[in-house]
Design a protein around this nucleic acid. Structure first.
Lengths: 212, 212, 212, 212
DNA sequence: TATGAATGAGTCTTCATTCAT
DNA sequence: CATGAATGAAGACTCATTCAT
């Protein structure tokens, strides 16, 4: 499964032959089929592998006391992978993109699930941040652009993960790991800036885009 | 070329056969080879097609007097494509991701070039924005987190395009066009918020992520 | 198609590879797939080939004025094929038997159809025989063993074709062409004996089984 | 062995994998190989199984005092199996047909042997019938169509078994158990009609095909 | 004896590419 | 320039058979 995850990430699903995976795993081709009845099952296994990696990572991050620190540590972990990302993109993201091209949507639902899992974890952190720092303001929930409205943790999570996917894809397309560093710094800065804005407490620090 | 661009976007490079493209273009297979000697040349043609589309779009946007409006119109154009993006992702982005998996890097340089072209156009707009609105502060260029440092147009462009790629990929992975709407709104809001911050002019409006 | 029919008959469906057929037809394997998208389509083509042969044969027989003579000529044609039958069995029969083992019943319905076509032709001949020779007795249609009841052409046809299939299979299993000769003679004799029995016209000649 | 016989009959030799047989027998695959060194040995075992069934059946029939009754009971036993025959054909017959397609003739000799064993038993019965009913006429043995010539028990046996194989194959090809019923009735009728014809004792009853 | 994993040769099928007309 | 057939090199998948335990 590790071999499959690695090779599928590096070469993409379609360009990876079973022989590639078998060679990487150092087993004969036929034996691969003893464990995985189809190539699709191998892709699924690779997806599971990524899920497992993600779970392991978030479990480690969960040990940090502050949810904001957890999120920042996550971003730092992403940036550390910058060379891989610049060469092959985000494993889950590129897998999802490839699976999305299929007519039969069995597998891409699973790719979406992996991403949703990350989304959920991040949303949980954002929700916890609110608990410790919220001013309880729930007015204006109807106006999504009210700067004093409470944050929606799901939206924040979406922004975070989309940010990761975006920077991975750009780093990959431009073959430049520095993209990860720069955009990663922006995300860290953004995470730091998140706080409840109120008329008495206007946002002074620029929380979103980079202003380097 | 249009047929190639369309089918390659929808099915991905590897899953698309020449027969698919020929059928879509309503010409016999042999004829395709009269114009394109290899499949790679067809991919290249599709890439050119996307470049042409992009040039056409930016040319139209260039007619708007205000560079900020041009960028906002670009974002709106992206959001309008939300259904396609949710189904197949960003044409250039997914193409680049697929080409990035290749050992031979002939074509993915070209995919990168298309994205860089977009990046350049956006940076030009940001640069223009600065020209019309900057306070001339170039201090602190060394400190990327100095909130009063001048923006780097290239970085802003990177953030913008990464934002687009990220939201496209997320919309695609989650099969949810609404992702485009939400993240697009955030980008618009962000574009609106961009201005020179200074001690006398602190940022009052939340410029980054949405907080509903 | 001729090559497919021949090889499939000789080697059976499962033991015949596409390479076998391609070699026999003296075309490269890939080219076979230009005309037949799957192996099953090739089997179907072989079936059509057999149908065509059958049609050709019956068309020739139809030129004989007497229906009884047509049937007898058919039996003689079968006997002439005794060496092939002893080696490989009846083409249609063995094909039908093999197809009958499949879970998916798409093709074996077609095999059945070929046999039914033969059955229909034979029944037509028997019906014609009745028209020219019947005594009009329709009594006792309820008693299938009333020796004076009129013959049912469909049953006669079934008996004839079953006789052919039986003798082919026995010849094949025993690898003995003489089986075809002996049983063929019995069928001829039986065809000759068919006439309307009545109390005034008791059957004197042994019409059914062999009594050599 | 029973599992092998059953599955090989239902699926055919080539479409049956060792895993199928192992699963049906509820033993692990490796274990099958402890008892049967090759797949061919399994086929042979299935053939033995059929022989054993046949021996058991004929032994039971041998208890009947009249040889004609034994043969008629055999036909009735065949007809009772009509549903299996309509679905999968005669076990021995289809096996023999499949084995006949092989280049190497080791096994199909054995399939022929099973059928010959049946032939021999039937011939024995016919011979016994003659002993008890013959008029001793041995004239005209040279003229196979002399209606007063003595029957050849081997030929009668061949006709009987060919009749069985033919009706099984037709029932299978047409997927219609009623074929067995109709042709079975004809065979019974035929068995009943068998007697020595002589000028003084012309055949009054229609002995051959049904004429309803 | 029993077990389940290992092995690799062989089969169907696809497809980029070529080519004769 | 157009066309449709030809070609063969892969690639997914199967399965009889072996083998270590």
């Amino acid at each position: 499964m590790a071999a499959a995850a690695r090779v599928l990430h590096e070469q993409g699903i379609e360009r990876t032959t079973l022989a590639d995976i078998a060679r990487e795993a150092d087993v004969p081709v036929g034996n691969v089929y003893y464990y995985f009845k189809t190539k699709d099952e191998l892709v699924q296994a690779a997806l599971s592998e990524h899920t497992a990696h993600l779970d392991e990572l978030t479990a480690r991050l969960d040990e940090l006391p502050d949810p904001r620190d957890r999120l920042k540590a996550l971003v730092r972990a992403w940036v550390e992978q910058r060379d891989v990302a610049a060469r092959y993109g985000c494993p889950t993201g590129t897998l999802a993109a490839e699976l999305g091209k299929r007519a039969d949507g069995t597998l891409d639902a699973e790719a979406g699930a992996v991403i949703r899992r990350l989304l959920d974890w991040a949303a949980r952190q954002f929700r916890e941040m609110r608990l410790s720092g919220a001013n309880g303001n729930t007015d204006g929930a109807d106006d999504p652009y009210d700067p004093y409205a409470p944050y929606d943790p799901d939206d924040l999570a979406l922004t975070l993960v989309a940010g990761y996917q975006g920077m991975s894809l750009m780093a990959n397309a431009l073959r430049d790991p520095e993209v990860m560093t720069r955009e990663g710094a922006r995300l860290l800065h953004w995470l730091d800036s998140l706080q409840w804005a109120s008329p008495e407490n206007p946002l002074k620090h620029f929380p979103g885009p980079p202003h380097q």
